[in-house]
Design a protein around this nucleic acid. Structure first.
Length: 214
DNA sequence: GGCCAGGACACCA
DNA sequence: TGGTGTCATGGC
């Protein structure tokens, strides 16, 4: 696992994740990006900011119908509006202050996040790793695909299986676990889309893996 | 026109 | 527990 982190880091350099101006924005982005492209999320976040809607309080108060047109570009806009509002309602008990939410112990914190409708394991771990700086690895579609193509896991490996494997192979460090996930996404965006490419895709050169076979 | 994008949930067997 | 349908827009 260390070697994987090293080769990705050597190829792409530090990623400085999560790309957000505040933890609040980070949490909103984590919901918006679910099964969508980050490019669209950036557009929507810019629009939210423009309309003064990039705060938990504003998202809670604004009628859903008025959020729909803003969220439309990320897809699933009705669903994600509902989820943002669920997040905002949840955060009201912490005065809309993430640092207050983050006072809890990690597993307890994870459990409370998982109870929010629209926050599953991946979104919760992203908030924990990049927002609260807790040592939890985020397993996403890029991660599953990469580990599968590297022959490290079965195609249908579960979230917990992959996460445990990474946790076992790296220090208990939010910085390193977060960096690995960010680098996997960076690599995935460039080389590992739907069909076999890059290292894992001999037809293309890959900065991280050269021309290794799948 | 088809496939896919940094998922989660309800429902079912 | 595990599989499937649903949610939806935009880029390539």
């Amino acid at each position: 696992m260390r070697a994987l982190l090293d080769s990705l880091f050597a190829a792409y350099g530090p990623q400085h994740w999560w790309p957000a101006q505040s933890v609040e924005e980070m949490m909103v982005g984590a919901i918006l990006v679910q099964n969508s492209s980050w490019t669209q999320v950036e557009r929507v976040i810019a629009q939210l900011q423009l309309h003064d809607l990039l705060s938990l309080a504003a998202l809670r108060q604004m009628p859903a119908e008025q959020l729909w047109p803003v969220l439309r570009p990320v897809g699933f806009f009705r669903l994600k509006t509902r989820r943002l509002k669920a997040l905002a309602d949840f955060m009201a008990q912490y005065d809309d202050r993430p640092e207050q939410l983050f006072q809890q112990e990690t597993q307890r914190l994870r459990q409370s996040l998982l109870q929010v409708n629209g926050i599953g394991k991946e979104t919760a771990d992203a908030i924990l790793c990049y927002g609260a700086r807790r040592p939890l690895f985020v397993v996403d579609a890029y991660t599953k695909r990469l580990f599968y193509r590297l022959g490290r896991v079965a195609e249908n490996a579960s979230y917990d299986t992959i996460q445990a494997m990474v946790h076992q192979g790296l220090p208990n460090s939010a910085e390193q676990l977060g960096e690995l996930h960010a680098l996997i996404v960076c690599h995935g965006k460039e080389h590992c889309r739907a069909r076999p490419r890059c290292a894992l895709c001999p037809l293309h050169f890959c900065p991280a893996f050269g021309r290794l076979s799948p």
